[in-house]
């Protein structure tokens, strides 16, 4: 599994893990992120159980599992957190698990013994260390009805979950974790956003909300990371996209 450092300043660091060449083709590719500050780390969307072995192996090249103080699950999907019971087997027993209050009882189906720190609808701020604070910002209905992004104002990175997700066929990746040709990348995001997102109101609110943030990188849970001007390009693109395409198949 590939590991790319997105940001590093002193002991504050963001790393992305993904594009696992050993992953079975029928399992959708996911990105997992770790934010570190000193000896504290948080794992964002730790992934499905199928990617757990490679993710664990890739992560432990970088940090000790004992440093993982928290796991963050943006929403309830299996590609986000079905590995939860496995992570809890290697992490310290007091590892915090952040998840929307909406999904605690549902995600318990993956792991009935997990204790969640539930995130209220309006989000919350957590301190990873003395000087690294993270904001869990609401992204409800995009696509999940209880969904959060993670914003790190110091690193100027927004982990956007399924927003910005792209399903890039393995033979179309060029080895990089970053979008290099925004126009060419649209084909891999278009179908996903049209079909997976349902609420225009939520999309508009999200666009308004993230437009106020200073974002240098927008890091989705699938596909490639947007950097610099591509962040604005993505926000403009999603703002004008016709979403909720599944509705057309009803009442026919």
């Amino acid at each position: 599994m590939k590991c790319v450092t997105l940001f590093r300043e002193d002991d504050h660091c963001w790393q992305a893990f993904g594009q696992d060449p050993d992953k079975p083709d029928n399992v959708v590719d996911t990105n997992q992120y770790v934010i570190r500050s000193g000896s504290a780390a948080i794992l964002l969307d730790p992934g499905g159980m199928e990617v757990f072995p490679s993710m664990l192996a890739a992560l432990t090249r970088e940090i000790s599992v004992d440093d993982i103080k928290a796991l963050f699950l943006s929403h309830q999907d299996p590609d986000i957190g079905s590995s939860l019971p496995l992570w809890r087997r290697v992490c310290k027993p007091d590892v915090k698990i952040y998840l929307s209050w909406l999904w605690a009882g549902f995600t318990a189906h993956f792991d009935r013994d997990a204790v969640f720190t539930t995130i209220p609808d309006e989000g919350m701020e957590v301190s990873l260390s003395h000087d690294v604070k993270l904001r869990f910002i609401p992204a409800h209905y995009l696509h999940s009805s209880g969904n959060f992004n993670v914003y790190d104002p110091k690193a100027r990175i927004l982990f956007s979950g399924d927003m910005g997700a792209a399903l890039v066929p393995a033979d179309k990746t060029n080895g990089s974790m970053f979008v290099s040709d925004f126009a060419g990348h649209i084909q891999y995001m278009d179908g996903f956003h049209r079909r997976w997102l349902g609420s225009t109101r939520a999309r508009d609110a999200w666009v308004a909300q993230v437009s106020k943030l200073d974002i240098h990188m927008l890091a989705p849970q699938h596909g490639l990371v947007f950097k610099g001007d591509d962040v604005k390009r993505f926000i403009d693109w999603i703002a004008g996209l016709d979403i909720g395409s599944g509705v057309a198949s009803m009442n026919r």
């Binding site: 159980m49 757990f52 072995p53 490679s54 664990l56 192996a57 432990t60 090249r61 000790s64 599992v65 004992d66 496995l86 087997r89 290697v90």
Partner: peptide, 25 residues
């Protein structure tokens, strides 16, 4: 899954704590 993780961690490039964590699990 842990057996697969054992194989991946036991590659000489991981430190002992990683292997210990996987073996323990």
């Amino acid at each position: 899954l842990f057996e697969r993780a054992c194989g991946l961690v036991d590659d000489g490039e991981h430190d002992a704590t990683a292997k210990a964590a996987v073996d323990r699990a």
